[in-house]
Amino acid sequence: MRAAAALFVHRTFMLLRPPKAGPLVRSLSGGRLNTHPYTKRDTCMVGTAAAAEADFGRRSGERMINKNMAAALLLLGALGSSVQARSLTAIKQDGTLHIGTSGDMPPFSYTVDGINTGLEVDLLSMVAADLGLKVDFTVVPVDGALTSFTTRNVDVVVGGLGITSTRENKVDFTQPYMCLGMSVVSRDPAIQTRFDLENKSIGVLSGSTIQGFVAKLPFPKKTVVLATTTDVIFAVATGKVDASLAYATMAPVMAKLYPKAGVHFGPVQWSVPVGAMVAQNDASLRLALNRGLNKVMNDGRYAQLSSKYLGSDARCKATTP
């Protein structure tokens, strides 16, 4: 595909080269469509109207060519970006696995006194250590996760990221290491399920799967898009929005952060598989991470992590021993 784009750019540049005998001019004189060789010296011979038409046609053609060339260059740029994500070989040569995280998704990935912690932070650190790698964390907003492999130079992104077909059209995921129930969150005890959100204001995280889900709800509602998970939690806890949706496992975190807010979680509406996001261009890292995840999930370490952060085993049923 990259070679085809390069060929397209080459051919486009060739079209822009000045022709030896000049382009053809189309004349509509006499209602007929005729062609004439056109050069600057021929202008008065062809006639003012034909010359004007020729100039217009030439400039229109160049604009069309320029648009095509720009599209091809953008294609090349996109292809070039996709191959910038590092392979496992390059990562091992560097010795460090660069992990992107929003840093505000407790209990999965968050910071305490500037130190990264959480189930996914510890899990990926264990997998990296088994691969002989150090870890380095970079803040990546959820709405920038899909492009972070080239814009922020990360190798993998975590933070409660649901695995969806829409996301998998642009990136890859490791095997799911959690299946988490999604619940409606509100201070109003009458708001229990997604069907209770009609005519309500709903806080959603920008770029999250929840934003897309709420947009498709078939009834009137007000969607309030917020930049961070912290903003969403605060908006619900302070009544700035009527409700939101969140993983049910976040209930203890909400109770700890805002003990007097009276925020409650409704029954689980559906389950979401969660995994680590990786670039599509090289399967070597994804396969290595999957092998590492299988090891951690079967030697007892995952059960300890899940119990520590969630109070239960969060593995998808199919992967629970």
Rank of each mutant, 00 (worst) to 15 (best):
M1P: 15
R2W: 08
A6W: 09
L7V: 15
F8V: 15
V9E: 04
T12N: 12
F13R: 10
L15K: 06
L16I: 01
R17L: 13
P18G: 01
P19M: 00
K20A: 13
L24G: 10
R26L: 10
S27Y: 05
L28A: 11
R32Y: 08
R32T: 09
T35I: 06
T35H: 11
D42A: 14
M45L: 14
M45R: 15
M45D: 13
V46D: 00
G47D: 08
A49E: 10
A49H: 10
A51Q: 07
F56Q: 08
R59C: 07
L74W: 03
L76V: 13
L76S: 05
A78Y: 10
L79W: 04
L88E: 02
I91S: 03
D94V: 08
L97S: 04
H98K: 15
S102F: 02
S102L: 03
G103L: 02
T111H: 04
T111Q: 15
V112I: 13
D113S: 08
D113Q: 09
I115D: 12
N116T: 12
N116P: 13
T117D: 11
D122E: 06
L124E: 05
S125N: 07
S125W: 03
M126Y: 11
G132E: 01
L133Q: 01
K134E: 07
D136E: 15
F137R: 05
V139R: 06
P141Y: 01
V142M: 07
V142C: 01
T147K: 14
T151V: 14
T151H: 10
T151E: 15
V156C: 09
V158H: 06
G159K: 01
G160N: 02
G160R: 02
E168N: 12
N169Y: 10
N169F: 11
K170I: 14
Y177S: 02
M178I: 00
M178H: 02
L180Q: 03
M182I: 10
M182A: 08
V184Y: 00
V185I: 02
A190H: 10
A190D: 14
T193D: 05
L197E: 01
L197C: 03
N199K: 05
K200A: 01
G203A: 09
L205M: 11
I210N: 11
F213D: 10
V214D: 03
L217K: 01
L217W: 00
F219R: 04
F219C: 01
K221D: 00
T223V: 15
T223H: 08
V224G: 04
V224W: 03
V224K: 04
V225D: 12
T229Q: 14
T230D: 13
D231Q: 09
I233P: 09
I233F: 15
F234V: 13
F234T: 14
L245C: 09
L245N: 06
L245E: 14
P252I: 07
V253H: 10
V253M: 11
Y258R: 04
P259M: 04
K260Y: 13
A261R: 11
W270D: 13
S271W: 12
V272K: 06
P273M: 00
V278W: 05
Q280D: 11
D282I: 06
A283Y: 12
L287V: 11
L289V: 10
L289A: 02
N290Q: 04
K295N: 13
V296S: 02
M297L: 11
D299T: 07
D299A: 07
D299L: 06
Y302I: 04
A303H: 10
L305M: 02
S306R: 11
S306L: 06
S307N: 15
K308M: 07
G311T: 05
C316N: 00
K317Y: 10
T320P: 06
